[in-house]
Simulated scan of single mutants.
Amino acid sequence: MVTGGTDGMGAALARHFLNAGDRVVVIGRSRAKFEALLTTVTSDQPVGSRAEFVAADLSLVADSRRVVAHLRANHERIDALVLAASFIRQRRHLTAEGHEASWALFFLSKYLFVTGLHTLLGAVDRPVIVNTAVPGARADAITFDDLEMGKGFSFARSNAQQRRANELLGILATNHNPGLSYVTWGPARLVRSSFAGEVGKTMTIAATILGTLAGQHPDAAVRPIIDLIDTPTPGRAAYRGAKQLTLTDSDRDHEDATRLAAAVADVAAG
């Protein structure tokens, strides 16, 4: 299952596993992009029912809950869950539900998927979650009394908080299922993509030029992810490209993970 599976690295992963003969569920906002993705699948095996699309805007908590409920009702197992949905915002933006959009997309949706789908992941021998949250955030990156950054929002602070929160989510997930492989992963260098988001002209131009000149093709960028999915190792891990990084495992990390779960308990409970 791949969130953000109609663009960039998410689409590259969906295409790879469809070509490999697997069943793939793609979560995204555009069915047209999903249909276009299917035209790039070169497998000799008919795609047919092996490719499923679920439309959702994962910056909306209600949509994340709906997708989780759909998967639980229609699937018995999930071998690999890839959390790759992305939409970059440089400024604070509130959704129609009143949540800060980046926090909702980059953490709340992932929390709901990881916690809501644990039974389906637990139904397989070697489940794996790959969370495309670049590892290595500071331990003090989370503002627990203002998670949605109503005060002093900045793109840098928001990004660091999301990254730290997703590392802590790995502690919660593997505590619940010790056999789970939970990987926070970031590309080794810039990846060519459609760069979806609401950003300034300078960032858009820079990303377009650098991506064209020096960026990896998504198919090449996701090779390390494919290897991690094909040969999962239980426990937490972090990677930049194919290079494994050291993760901390201190008392503070575990205390912060528990504190984070308590802080978003109301959202998870609905």
Rank of each mutant, 00 (worst) to 15 (best):
Val114Ile: 08
Gly5Asn: 02
Phe107Leu: 04
Leu260Lys: 08
Val183Tyr: 01
Arg138Asp: 13
Gly186His: 04
Val61Ser: 05
Gly8Met: 04
Tyr111Glu: 03
Phe53Gln: 02
Val67Thr: 08
Asp249Lys: 11
Arg259Asp: 07
Lys110Val: 04
Val67Ile: 04
Thr231Ala: 14
Val264Thr: 11
Leu190Glu: 08
Ile88Leu: 15
Gly10Thr: 05
Leu81Tyr: 06
Val26Pro: 03
Thr202Leu: 15
Ala269Asp: 13
Glu35Trp: 08
Thr39Gly: 09
Leu260Arg: 01
Gly197Ser: 07
Thr132Leu: 15
Ala141Arg: 09
Glu198Phe: 09
Gly48Arg: 07
Leu37Lys: 10
Pro178Ile: 03
Phe113Ser: 05
Glu198Arg: 13
Thr3Ser: 04
Gly10Arg: 00
Asn131Glu: 07
Thr174Ile: 02
Lys243Leu: 14
Thr248Ile: 04
Thr258Glu: 14
Gly270Pro: 09
Gln161Ala: 10
Ile209Ser: 12
Ala51Asn: 04
Leu81Pro: 08
Arg236Glu: 01
Leu38Ile: 09
Phe34Asn: 01
Glu167Tyr: 06
Ile129Phe: 00
Asp249Val: 09
Ser154Thr: 10
Arg31Val: 05
Ser193Phe: 04
Glu76Thr: 15
Leu260Met: 07
Ser193Ala: 02
Thr258Asp: 15
Gly186Met: 12
Arg259Gly: 05
Asp63Gly: 09
Leu105Cys: 00
Ala188Arg: 14
Arg126Ala: 13
Phe113Thr: 02
Leu120Ser: 03
Gln45Asp: 13
Arg77Leu: 02
Ile142Gln: 05
Ile205Asp: 07
Arg29Trp: 00
Arg236Ile: 03
Gln216His: 14
Thr143Ser: 14
Phe106Asp: 12
Asp266Tyr: 07
Ala51His: 03
Ala265Ile: 03
Ala80His: 06
Ala123Val: 06
Thr95Asp: 01
Ala73Ser: 12
Leu94Thr: 13
Pro234Leu: 03
His93Asn: 14
Asp140Phe: 10
Asp125Val: 14
Gly179Ala: 07
Thr132Asp: 07
Ser30Val: 00
Gln216Arg: 14
Ala84Trp: 01
Arg72Phe: 12
Ile205Trp: 14
Ala133Ser: 13
Val183Cys: 07
His93Gln: 14
Ile226His: 01
Asp146Asn: 07
Leu18Gly: 08
